[in-house]
Design a protein around this nucleic acid. Structure first.
Lengths: 252, 252
DNA sequence: ATTAACTCTGTACGCCGTACAGTATAACGA
DNA sequence: TCGTTATACTGTACGGCGTACAGAGTTAAT
């Protein structure tokens, strides 16, 4: 499949891993030399530095000094490992108390916290979360974020809608930013260099008179952002729109 | 890397492919038995039916009745093939004239057209487009979509911002929807079945009193949407917010 | 007739996740 | 104390991926 997905493993095995349920039987064989946390942390370290695509069972095993198949004694498989990495990242998010602050400020804090998460762990933005991680970190995060929408007169369903909409925007931005960085790394060209390589070639085939708006606006946007994707600008612009959009719901 | 990326191939080769620039030299060897379009169409057919992950050089070669390496005489590589598939999809988007209509209606049409694209070709939503496809289809699409924002008193840069914001929302929704479908296919469980498998296990470890909002809102949202991700609802809710957000910019 | 350009193909390399079988280890019941 | 047995760990192997490379066959220009 394209990209990684959360909640893709066996439900029972995944929940046992996420909540660290101890194996029922007393442990009879040799002691484990590593721990689940060591594996999860190793995965996170590789993903942070080189992207989730670099996280392979072979790679983590090498980093941890064990053989590849040993990984499977700590974690049922790659799918469950990704869930564990994700839940651990959620668990580490700061959750400052913003009770009593204006709703825009509280929602901005939620948005910023998620953006910060995606900046320290760019791979988080790329995980497909249709089937959410149901671990303790995810629960704590959901509870905290809903609290920012509590007491605004929204129905329960509207609270969930609004949160989905807000985080959807933040992760969309974060994904674009992570994507831009990954493209630069993989191609060994920054945006400016890439455009410099493409512009002269495109000029030979593109008819600016046939597409006047595209030519004019494309040039203006490229010049304004230095031909590079400006993640901060997109986030600032978008978040203002998102809050204005929610205002129509909250202050109705 | 996780997932497919556009604009990841060699710039010169990619642009030659997208604009179908004829090879300079007269053709000396045997005639080709297939065509670029046949390869692009075969890739699109597989991606539509089974997802972009199912599109491999070996698979397309088999479908087209040639050997794997023959693919490379039509297309420089997988990266360039994805660009060609994407540009062809853009080129096929309908572009009805909405000149003179209210701006909300015009932008809704743009949003709906992109949503329709992502429904006939769910893989489109999953392509990372930090480095855009610079083919004729992409250019025609950009021109058309900008025209919906022309004459509203926005600066060129604001037009690009607004379009980025709008399409960002649409593709975010589309990605969630495609993701939900892919998860259901891959896991052989629909959302309801997946939740039914997880709920009893989660109930054993989740403390509803520690996370009262999460428990209450999660239940309400799950009940309202039949425990399934409701893509139409998210889109309708979100698009209203997006347009309200842009109204603050347009009608200022 | 020769040569150069081109199409097509088979093999091979290094990645991936992981199934499976085998061996070493440590705690339990006797 | 001595099996017995659950467990930890490892090596090999399979089928997938993109694609580099070398070679064989085909056609048009010289």
């Amino acid at each position: 499949m394209s990209g990684e997905r959360s909640g893709a493993g066996d439900p029972a095995k995944t929940l046992r891993l996420l909540w660290r349920e101890p194996g029922a039987a007393p442990r009879r064989g040799p002691r484990q030399t590593l721990s689940i946390d060591a594996v999860v942390d190793a995965g996170t370290a590789v993903a942070d530095a080189e992207g989730l695509a670099a996280v392979s069972m072979r790679r983590l095993a090498t980093d941890l000094g064990v053989s590849t198949m040993t990984m499977y004694t700590y974690v049922p498989g790659k799918a469950e490992l990704v869930d564990a990495m994700l839940d651990a990242a959620y668990a580490r998010m700061p959750r400052p108390d913003t009770t009593g602050r204006p709703w825009r400020e509280r929602l901005t804090a939620v948005a910023d916290a998620n953006r910060a998460l995606c900046r320290t762990h760019p791979w988080v933005a790329g995980v497909h979360t249709a089937r959410p991680t149901l671990g303790p970190g995810a629960m704590a995060r959901y509870e905290y974020e809903l609290s920012a929408l509590d007491g605004l007169g929204l129905s329960d369903v509207e609270m969930d809608d609004a949160l989905t909409y807000l985080t959807g925007f933040v992760y969309g931005c974060a994904r674009a930013e992570a994507d831009a960085r990954a493209a630069a790394t993989d191609s060994a060209m920054n945006d400016e260099q890439w455009w410099a390589a493409n512009a002269p070639l495109l000029a030979k085939v593109f008819d600016a008179e046939a597409y006047p708006l595209a030519a004019r606006v494309g040039t203006a946007a490229g010049t304004a952002h230095g031909a590079a994707y400006d993640a901060d600008h997109a986030y600032t612009f978008g978040l203002a729109r998102v809050l204005d959009g929610l205002a129509a719901l909250v202050e109705r």
